[in-house]
């Protein structure tokens, strides 16, 4: 299983803070995005956003980054702290 978490504006848009998904056939961040949109078609517009950032196990990564069972994947808008 892969744990997926969403933050800030994205969490509010999706109406979802966290979910778990079987890791079968999901090998990269981009593949995970496709599966999430397949399961929730109305999420497409948010995942097409090029500015969306992703992290695997608390490390910021790009779409080609590999993922595996047990990973925690996060999606969130550009950060605005400080």
């Amino acid at each position: 299983m892969i744990k997926v978490v969403f933050f800030a504006g994205l969490r509010e848009q999706l109406g979802c803070a966290e979910l778990t998904i079987p890791s079968v056939h999901i090998t990269t961040i981009n593949a995970l995005k496709l599966v999430l949109v397949e399961l929730n078609p109305h999420w497409q517009v948010y995942f097409e956003n090029k500015a969306l950032l992703s992290a695997v196990n608390h490390d910021m990564v790009d779409g080609e980054h590999p993922i595996k069972s047990g990973d925690e994947v996060a999606f969130f808008p550009p950060v605005t702290g400080g």
């Binding site: 933050f7 800030a8 504006g9 509010e12 500015a51 992290a55 910021m60 996060a74 969130f76 808008p77 550009p78 950060v79 605005t80 702290g81 400080g82």
Partner: peptide, 26 residues
């Protein structure tokens, strides 16, 4: 440290403005 905190650390600000609540853009 401040420059990289601004662009790398996962914090998000929501502003309470006269037009309502608004998540800040980068």
């Amino acid at each position: 440290i401040m420059d990289f905190l601004k662009v790398k650390a996962p914090f998000w600000k929501k502003e309470l403005t006269e037009e309502g609540e608004k998540w800040l853009g980068a």
